[in-house]
């Protein structure tokens, strides 16, 4: 067979696999573009999990009850686990975790810009669980069916844990809303600050999302940004009502005809600013990650040296 016909056969079987809704596995042939897109998407997701530990992690030592402390510590630990599952999935595509981490630290790969907002009170922990983890779930449940097998399987574990994250956040908010007036104010203030950034987590509107079509064709992505965002709004409005908080959008109203909640326009210039590195906490988040990586280097080297010595002694 000539080279071209090999490529054609490969491409045909790849396309057929996707069309049959089957999974692509690590050692299958795949187009370079698919591999590149997959690595970028998984890495960006992994980075988000790891950077996402920081805003909430700041509150572990300060949590106001031992029960909340245990819950938060376990939640932040889960996020580290999510990062690891995902880096592990990226490595099946030939990426290297150390290399991905360097790309993150050098600003060559992105993470979810939601984590560039500061956490100002303990109510933020609850609102992050409810809205941020909630939005993540909306985004991620369809990814359990991603065409790339290892990614889909990692997402199953992750979604399982995310649903606990959302529940614990909502439960914290319900408890706080039953507390003092000051606590109720804290909750409302946190909702005011996190609502719009949560909506931005679904990415730019469909008509401005250039890569979406290819990702849909490859079944890396299964719903459009706007579709998922609408689903999130529809779910969140009754939850906010039950909680007794107001969502900071005067244009929010039920549209009988559409069968959905209408919501006001999103300030995309704000999102662009935060994505391009001008959010309130961008520099801090990356600096913390860089420091942890650098300060840990001597420890990792020592362990590698020790393992080598042991191996040599055994040989």
């Amino acid at each position: 067979m000539t080279d071209t016909s090999v490529t054609e056969t490969n491409e045909k079987s790849f396309t057929e696999t996707i069309a049959k809704d089957q999974r692509i596995e690590p050692r299958d042939w795949m187009p370079d573009g698919y591999r590149r897109t997959m690595i970028r998407q998984i890495a960006q997701h992994a980075h988000s999990e790891i950077i996402g530990m920081q805003p909430e992690g700041e509150w572990i030592t300060r949590a106001p009850s031992l029960r909340r402390k245990a819950i938060l510590l376990a939640k932040v630990q889960d996020e580290a686990g999510h990062g690891l599952y995902l880096y592990s999935a990226a490595e099946t595509l030939g990426a290297d975790r150390g290399d991905l981490t360097r790309r993150l630290i050098e600003g060559r790969q992105k993470y979810s810009s939601i984590f560039n907002y500061p956490t100002l009170s303990f109510a933020d922990v609850g609102v992050i669980g409810w809205l941020v983890d909630g939005a993540a779930i909306c985004n991620q449940v369809p990814l359990c069916r991603s065409s790339y097998g290892p990614y889909g399987r990692a997402m199953i574990r992750i979604c399982k844990e995310e649903s606990f994250h959302q529940r614990q956040g909502y439960e914290l908010l319900m408890t706080m809303m039953r507390g003092t007036p000051a606590q109720r104010e804290m909750v409302q203030d946190a909702v005011n600050r996190w609502w719009w950034p949560s909506l931005m987590m679904f990415g730019p509107p469909d008509d401005q999302s250039p890569n979406s079509a290819q990702s849909m064709a490859w079944k890396i992505k299964r719903h459009s940004n706007d579709e998922l965002r609408q689903r999130f709004v529809d779910m969140s409005v009754p939850q906010a009502e039950a909680l007794g908080v107001t969502l900071p959008d005067p244009e929010l109203r039920w549209n009988e005809e559409r069968g959905h909640w209408d919501f006001g326009p999103i300030d995309w210039s704000e999102l662009k600013r935060v994505i391009s590195g001008d959010g309130p906490c961008n520099a801090l988040r990356i600096e913390n990650r860089r420091r942890a990586d650098e300060e840990g280097a001597w420890v990792r080297e020592a362990a590698a040296a020790h393992a080598r010595r042991r191996q040599e002694a055994a040989a």
Binding site: G134, V141, C144, R145, I156, S163, Q166
Partner: peptide, 12 residues
């Protein structure tokens, strides 16, 4: 590839 997604994956 045969292993399907468990029904229990939470849709919240």
């Amino acid at each position: 590839t045969y292993y399907s997604i468990p029904d229990s994956v939470p849709h919240i």
